[in-house]
Design a protein around this nucleic acid. Structure first.
Lengths: 99, 99
DNA sequence: TTTGTCTACTTTGTAGTACAAAGTACTTTT
DNA sequence: AAAAGTACTTTGTACTACAAAGTAGACAAA
């Protein structure tokens, strides 16, 4: 019995997998960087970020930079752990494929 | 710019990724085998199968076995191609993760 | 013989989700 | 001071995943 059900759905969604992946590569980044990197709409990105924050997977820092708001995000310990678990499971699944 | 958007959503859903993975391992299998292997409800499995068939990713063969209906599924060429593309993209994404 | 149970699915109703359009708040330009 | 721009957030809608309920035939018991 292959365990597809345990793939964390909070991470599995492409946009959120993207956010988590980007944040695994750098300690933190801001809204516009994510928006550019993932090529999503403001609204979509914002709601996905909120979900990840609510889950405790990322922390948010708001400052003013050049008189403009600037919000940056980084993975929490929990977020790193959950991403790590997700990656392990997904890698196992991909290995199962014989194509 | 990482290309998370191009992950084929018809394959990405866990149950359907499961179906495709199982069918990449064996030429064909039947409804009950998928149900057991993926641990899903009848209804859920049925609708996911229909989606994959509508997309042309798998073909369906219905017979009677011991006076009971028996339906088996196998990947089409298109299905194999799309799975292959998905796997490549997902592997690239997983490689990006630094955790 | 008809009532009930079993297998093997399919259809349908609902609750939840992803997305972009619209909205907010502040700044800069004209 | 009116308009346009930046940096987001909130909201409405269209879609989706899921299981409960439904269908159809086989066999069993009453």
């Amino acid at each position: 019995m292959l365990d597809f059900k345990s793939l964390n759905p909070l991470i599995h969604t492409p946009v959120r997998l993207g956010i988590m992946t980007v944040l695994s590569q750098q300690d933190s980044c801001d809204f516009n960087f994510l928006k550019k990197t993932l090529d999503t709409s403001d609204g979509n990105l914002s709601t996905h970020i909120t979900k990840l924050e609510t889950a405790g997977y990322l922390s948010i820092t708001k400052i003013f930079q050049n008189k403009l708001p600037n919000t940056s995000y980084s993975l929490t310990q929990l977020g790193k752990m959950e991403l790590s678990t997700y990656l392990t499971k997904m890698r196992n699944i991909l290995q199962q494929s014989e194509i």
